[in-house]
């Protein structure tokens, strides 16, 4: 691990200012960042610890939703009674990811900011445009079974690996931030993660030093909530394909897919055909998909995972 200096921030704007300096980074739970620092994939020269900023509560909003502090642990978010009752797709998604130890430490904001688990990103001997811009992509033409099938580019075919964000996408969450100048903004979660394009080194739209303070969920939308995750092990594995869905009694609903793209993959026009069944939704949602020979199976797998959810919704 490269040497770094460390400070514990006590004020959000001061933290944003400190982290806006080149080489500086925020640390909250640290479960992904320290893993990457040990491998020298991440090499910050200064860490700004944000755990004392008080963003550790889940509060009601005036519009009937909830505001989830950026530092609420994954465990505490999944266990919150309002979340289990009114937004259970979110609890289901969180407990489908990682391990109990990691969920206890990992934060809400950190979960959104976790980096891809593409094996070529992790192997510093391999070319990777995300790790080292301009070095190429060894995943293209390489072992790509777990990698992306849509929204990827000729520079990078990695996926966003998380589960929590896929559920937040169907719940129309917004990501609240503050920057070094004290400016606040709310970013719809659908706009938060970037498609790789020519700059796969940029995962999100956050500016340097911009600090996530909370994730806000609008008022509950009812319906039955599902998070169906298909993976190589029954527990503690990343999704090959996952489906987050909220389905209403009349068969309409919302659907987002995980494990397939640089971001939670939700296509509103595809949701509109949900009453016609899983195949119709997947055909529309994955129009223009560019799977490799290794990961072409994700298309029928997405259809089957969604079909399973629709069947459960009718049970």
């Amino acid at each position: 691990m490269k040497a770094f200096t460390y400070e514990r921030a006590h004020d959000a704007q001061a933290a944003a200012r400190a982290a806006a300096r080149p080489g500086a980074k925020f640390i909250a739970g640290g479960t992904n960042l320290l893993d990457l620092m040990k491998l020298e994939i991440e090499t910050p020269t200064h860490l700004v610890d944000v755990q004392n900023l008080g963003f550790d509560k889940i509060e009601k909003t005036s519009s009937g939703g909830i505001r989830i502090g950026a530092l609420v642990s994954n465990t505490d978010l999944a266990a919150d009674e309002r979340v289990r009752r009114d937004y259970s797709v979110l609890t289901r998604a969180i407990v489908a990811g990682a391990s109990g130890q990691l969920r206890n430490k990992a934060s809400t904001a950190g979960n959104l900011l976790q980096r891809t688990r593409c094996p070529y990103f992790y192997d510093t001997n391999m070319a990777c445009n995300k790790r080292k811009p301009g070095s190429g992509c060894a995943a293209i033409g390489g072992y790509s079974r777990q990698l992306g099938i849509i929204g990827v580019s000729d520079k990078c075919i990695a996926t966003f690996p998380g589960d929590m964000a896929v559920a937040m996408r169907v719940l129309d969450a917004t990501v609240d931030t503050i920057d070094a100048k004290g400016q606040c903004r709310s970013i719809p979660i659908g706009d938060f993660h970037r498609l790789w394009g020519d700059h796969p080194e940029q995962d999100t739209v956050l500016a340097p030093g911009e600090l996530i303070t909370a994730v806000t969920l609008p008022r509950p939308i009812g319906g039955k909530h599902f998070y169906e995750k298909v993976r190589d092990r029954a527990s503690y594995a990343y999704a090959l394909v996952s489906v987050a869905a909220v389905i209403q009694p009349d068969g309409t609903g919302r659907v987002a897919f995980g494990g397939v793209a640089p971001k939670p993959w939700r296509v509103e026009a595809a949701e509109a055909v949900l009453p016609q069944g899983a195949a119709a939704v997947v055909e529309r949602a994955f129009q223009g998909a560019t799977p490799t020979e290794d990961n072409r199976f994700k298309l029928p797998l997405a259809t089957r995972a969604l079909a399973s959810v629709i069947a459960q919704s009718k049970a």
């Binding site: 514990r8 640290g30 479960t31 320290l34 610890d49 130890q101 990691l102 206890n104 430490k105």
Partner: peptide, 10 residues
Amino acid sequence: INSCLTLAVM
């Protein structure tokens, strides 16, 4: 928690 993925100074 996993004590390997957290800094002592935190």
